[in-house]
Amino acid sequence: MNKEPKGMTLIVKTAARLTAGVILMYGIYIISHGHVSPGGGFAGGVIITLAFVLVILAFGKEFSMRKVSASIASSFESFGAIMFLAIALAGFLGGYFFLNFFINKGVPFTLFSAGIIPLCNIAISLKVGAGLFAVFAVLVMLKFTNGKDKG
């Protein structure tokens, strides 16, 4: 061993490499079918976060944080919140806040149905996924310094 090994063993890394994508895809499935089956934005967002958390755990935080940092996650979180608010505000098109403003709501139990609910699910998943990841990243990266910056 000439250098410090980062992250866990080769077995874990390989397994994580294989499964992380599948987990991510499963999260996207849960989000996109949130309005026709159990699940939705919150559950899907958490699952997507778990894919990222798995990568951090397997490969070590130094490697992973170069790709995705807490500040990017925080921006995504704000973006998700603003998107959700924008969808809610778009209800004013029909005269009411949070109005499901699509006239044609589609056939029930198909993927493209239920008006604004799938859009809300996407916004919520962005908010929850990025927010949870930011919390995890901040707690992982918290260095015990005497800086005044809030964690």
Partner: peptide, 24 residues
């Protein structure tokens, strides 16, 4: 309950952060 769990998650995340700072 789903809403209340989400609120609980936020509080837990905050209190764990505060606890780590207190330890520091």
């Amino acid at each position: 309950v789903l809403t209340s769990i989400v609120i609980g998650l936020a509080i837990t995340a905050l209190v764990v952060g505060i606890a780590m700072r207190i330890y520091e």
